[in-house]
Structure formats: C-alpha cells, structure tokens
Computed example of a mutant assay.
Amino acid sequence: MDFSGKDKAAYVQETFNTIAGHYDLMNSLMSLGMDKRWRRIAVQRVGARRGMNILDVCCGTGQLSQELGKAVGNEGSVTGLDFSRKMLDVARHTLEQSSEKKQIQFIQGNAMELPFPDHSFDGVTVGWGLRNLPDLRRGIQEMTRVVKPGGKVVSLDMAKPSLPVFKQVYWLYFEKLVPLMGQIWAKKASAYQYLHDSAVEFPSQQELARIFSECGLLETKFLNLAGGVVAVVSGTKPGHS
C-alpha cells in the first residue's frame, strides 16, 4: 500500500477523518445492506448480555457500539474507542437520537495503547478495525490484556472467500467498483482503494484465528458470513470470569 509518505497510523487517521460523514452510507451500499446483521452476530459471539461492560475498539461511527448497547441494557455499559475525531463526532451525533445513549460513551484513544487497566471489560469487540492497525499483534494483545479472564475478544472484518468463480467476482467488484462508488458518494476514491488494498493484505480468517491463539487466546474460531467475504473471529481469555 502507498501511504503517500505518511506512516500507516497517520494515513488511516486522515483517511477516516475525510470519509466520516459518508462512512455508514458506504458500508450499507458495499454490503448490500447486510452489515447490520453482521454486527448483530458479532454481538452474539462476544456474549454481550444485560449488565455487562463491553469495549468496542476502533468503533468508528459507533454502529457496533449501539448494537452492543442494546444487548447490555441500562444496567450495562459500552465504551467505544477510536482515534479519528471526525468519526467520533458522527458517532456522538447519531447516539443523541438513540435510546441507548445512557449506557454508551465514546472516547478518543489509541488501540495500540488502550487507556484501561488489565481485566477491565467483560468482552471486547473490533469491527473492521484490525486491518487498520500499524501492529496487528500488538492490537490483539492489548484487547486481550483489558478483557477479564473468561471474556471474549471478537473481530468482525473482511475475509477471504475460497469458492471458485465467486472469489474472482468478489475481488473484481472490490478492486474496481468499490473505489468508483467511493468517488461518486464520498468524493474520495483513494480512501476506498485503501479499503481494497488493506483487505488484500489482511490475514485470512484461518490465519487470524491462529494469530488470536498466538496472542494468548483460547478456543479461537471463525464464522464465515456472506460466503466468506466477511468473518467473525473470536477467542477467549484464559481463566474464569
């Protein structure tokens, strides 16, 4: 990937600040409206339920945080963390119209150095965020550090489909049409070219599950969605909650 002379962290921050206002629309368009269902599955996989305290890393515009908020209810809490100020501005604006606003808070922070003590959360999620991190393993280790023993770390992200023909059609769509859609609706083709390039370089769902294990998580597994275009990868921190 060409970061135009910037390091990855600076490039990603600038890119997502630029497309923040169109991000949710583009997600719906690119996923053909399936992204909401995918987020609900991630919420189920992390085991979110009433009264829990969940961290949503790289929360962006807060869509996954809001799904988590529904699951934990008024007795629980959700902390959404992102380092893009403009994405968080959109998240907070959307939250104002939500019935979950009492149990959700958004903070600006760095996924490489999570500003929380060890064993702080009942579960940790990250949606379409791991591939944007400058150090994938360090990010997973930080999420593992802050989750309580027995809690789950769950990633929802692009994956690598394996079905013949389907996978060729998918990558052609992603390489050619997605940047064009980005230019039309978000006036930023380069940002959506980055989404393609980062998805190409991101580990497969099988490999990511193995990396979860290397970072100290147990019972690592993945669930393919939409024919393997997207996958939910999860692992459990050793010990008892």
Rank of each mutant, 00 (worst) to 15 (best):
M1L: 13
F3Y: 15
F3Q: 01
D7G: 01
K8F: 11
A9R: 14
A9L: 13
A9C: 06
Y11P: 05
V12T: 06
T15W: 10
H22D: 13
Y23D: 09
D24E: 06
S28C: 10
M30R: 04
L32G: 13
D35L: 07
D35G: 03
W38H: 09
R39F: 08
R40W: 08
R40A: 13
A42F: 04
V43E: 05
R45N: 12
R45I: 11
V46Q: 05
G47V: 04
G47C: 07
G51Y: 04
I54M: 06
D56F: 05
V57I: 06
C58L: 03
T61A: 04
T61V: 03
G62Y: 11
S65D: 02
Q66L: 11
L68S: 10
G73S: 03
E75A: 15
G76E: 08
V78M: 04
G80K: 00
D82Y: 10
S84D: 09
S84N: 06
R85H: 14
R85D: 14
R85W: 09
D89S: 14
A91W: 02
R92S: 11
R92K: 15
T94H: 15
S99E: 15
I104L: 10
Q105M: 11
I107V: 14
Q108P: 05
N110G: 02
M112P: 00
L114G: 07
F116D: 03
F116L: 06
P117Q: 11
P117I: 03
S120F: 01
G123H: 03
T125K: 01
W128D: 01
L130R: 07
N132T: 02
L136N: 05
R138Q: 15
I140H: 07
K152S: 12
V154Q: 08
V154G: 02
L156F: 06
D157C: 04
M158T: 09
A159M: 00
K160F: 04
P164F: 02
P164A: 09
K167H: 12
W171Q: 10
K176N: 12
L177G: 11
I184V: 15
I184K: 10
A186V: 05
Q193N: 12
H196P: 08
A199N: 10
Q205Y: 02
Q206A: 15
E207Q: 14
L208Y: 11
R210H: 14
R210D: 13
S213R: 10
E214W: 05
G216A: 00
L217Q: 06
L217A: 01
L218F: 12
E219A: 12
E219S: 12
T220R: 10
L223M: 12
N224P: 09
L225K: 07
G227Y: 07
V229P: 01
V229W: 11
V232E: 06
V232G: 09
S234D: 09
T236Q: 13
T236E: 12
G239K: 11
G239A: 10
H240D: 13
S241P: 14
S241I: 08
